Computed example of a mutant assay.
Amino acid sequence: MKKTFAAIVKRTEAWDPGREAHEQDGFEHHAAFVAGLEAEGFIAMAGLMEESSDVLFIFFADSVAEVRERMARDPWQQDGHAKLVRVEEVQFRIGAPQQPAGG
Score class of each variant (00 low, 15 high):
residue 1 M to C: 03
residue 4 T to C: 10
residue 26 G to E: 08
residue 102 G to F: 03
residue 46 A to F: 02
residue 100 P to V: 09
residue 100 P to M: 12
residue 1 M to N: 07
residue 27 F to N: 11
residue 20 E to N: 14
residue 91 Q to G: 07
residue 76 W to T: 02
residue 81 H to W: 06
residue 77 Q to S: 14
residue 58 I to M: 07
residue 77 Q to G: 04
residue 61 A to S: 08
residue 70 R to V: 04
residue 40 E to C: 08
residue 91 Q to V: 09
residue 50 E to D: 10
residue 73 R to M: 08
residue 10 K to F: 04
residue 95 G to D: 12
residue 37 L to N: 07
residue 13 E to L: 14
residue 4 T to I: 10
residue 15 W to Y: 05
residue 52 S to L: 09
residue 58 I to P: 01
residue 21 A to W: 10
residue 57 F to D: 00
residue 34 V to L: 14
residue 11 R to W: 06
residue 60 F to T: 08
residue 65 A to G: 13
residue 86 R to A: 11
residue 63 S to C: 00
residue 47 G to I: 12
residue 35 A to P: 09
residue 74 D to A: 03
residue 99 Q to G: 15
residue 69 E to C: 07
residue 101 A to H: 09
residue 43 I to M: 00
residue 33 F to G: 05
residue 81 H to E: 07
residue 98 Q to G: 10
residue 29 H to R: 15
residue 94 I to R: 12
residue 54 D to V: 06
residue 43 I to K: 09
residue 56 L to K: 10
residue 91 Q to C: 08
residue 103 G to N: 11
residue 66 E to F: 00
residue 88 E to R: 05
residue 14 A to P: 04
residue 51 E to H: 15
residue 85 V to C: 02
residue 98 Q to I: 11
residue 68 R to Y: 02
residue 22 H to T: 12
residue 91 Q to R: 10
residue 51 E to A: 15
residue 91 Q to I: 05
residue 73 R to A: 11
residue 29 H to P: 12
residue 69 E to G: 02
residue 61 A to F: 01
residue 79 D to P: 11
residue 95 G to W: 05
residue 61 A to P: 06
residue 102 G to W: 07
residue 103 G to C: 12
residue 21 A to Q: 07
residue 86 R to C: 04
residue 68 R to N: 14
residue 32 A to D: 13
residue 15 W to Q: 06
residue 65 A to N: 14
residue 11 R to D: 09
residue 72 A to V: 01
residue 2 K to G: 02
residue 7 A to S: 13
residue 33 F to P: 11
residue 79 D to K: 13
residue 79 D to M: 13
residue 31 A to H: 15
